[in-house]
């Protein structure tokens, strides 16, 4: 059984249908990429999975449980974290306060401290700047913070929305390396990216989205060699 399955999802913004009929599965331990152009509906799908948006039809199953109607703030404690597009760190709070908010749903303080230590190991920069206000970090550092913040909830699956957007090439490399590490440690990853080439390199499987529909799916390596994908998304 898939860890996360999205079935016949339809989402509307008022009269406009953003997602027409989307179904896909994410198995435990996989890195799944959702790729597609601007406006294809990638962010909408992630928002619907994590409960920020309500679908008009279809459902979202997580570990066998229908989470479609569960409010976003309760989905977090089921083991799902979401790194939103544009990072959305709490700019006026310190780095440490941001990280602690990531662990908002956790009760055990010592376990939380352990996670914090691990996150500082992975992102030494965050420890150096733990008392700095998040709004003063660089874009790349804010992305690290957004990822660290999501990891603080100790998720089983992490949804990442355009983590490489607007970053310098060095940080882009860094971000993808971190995603690979997170996956290697056993966290399942659902990745939304416009940087299709990078996303396909680290993904196991991928789904290609076009104006609210999935038009292609399969093994990431195979998709990378698919002529239409190459032409439309890899710029070759």
């Amino acid at each position: 059984m898939a860890m996360l399955s999205v079935n016949n999802l339809q989402v509307h913004y008022g009269m406009i249908q953003a997602i027409k009929d989307v179904s896909f599965d994410v198995n435990e331990g996989e890195v799944i990429a959702l790729i597609g152009a601007n406006g294809a509906g990638k962010t909408t799908i992630l928002h619907t999975i994590s409960g920020l948006l309500q679908p008009t039809r279809g459902n979202v199953m997580f570990e066998g449980k229908d989470i479609t109607k569960i409010p976003a703030h309760k989905i977090v404690s089921l083991g799902m974290a979401h790194v939103p597009e544009g990072r959305r760190v709490f700019a006026q709070l310190s780095v440490l306060e941001n990280l602690k908010l990531g662990a908002y749903t956790r009760k055990d303080k010592t376990e939380m401290e352990e996670t914090l230590k691990m996150i500082y190991q992975r992102f030494p920069r965050l420890e150096e700047r733990k008392n700095q206000v998040a709004g003063t970090l660089s874009g790349g550092e804010q992305q690290m913070l957004a990822m660290g913040r999501a990891l603080m909830s100790h998720p089983k699956i992490i949804l990442m929305d355009e983590p490489s957007m607007g970053l310098s090439p060095i940080f882009v490399e860094e971000v993808f390396k971190i995603i690979r590490d997170i996956s290697a440690e056993g966290t399942t990853v659902l990745l939304v990216e416009q940087n299709a080439k990078k996303a396909l390199t680290i993904a196991d499987r991928a789904y290609v989205l076009e104006t609210g529909n999935i038009i292609l799916q399969g093994d990431a390596k195979k998709l990378m060699n698919d002529e239409s994908v190459k032409k439309a998304y890899l710029g070759e």
Partner: peptide, 24 residues
């Protein structure tokens, strides 16, 4: 307090606060 920090988070970004598990 956690509730106080949640208030600050909500005041800055309701959606992001919700994604942290804060009941807005």
């Amino acid at each position: 307090t956690k509730a106080g920090q949640a208030m600050l988070a909500v005041s800055e970004d309701k959606g992001a606060a919700e994604l942290m598990g804060v009941n807005v």
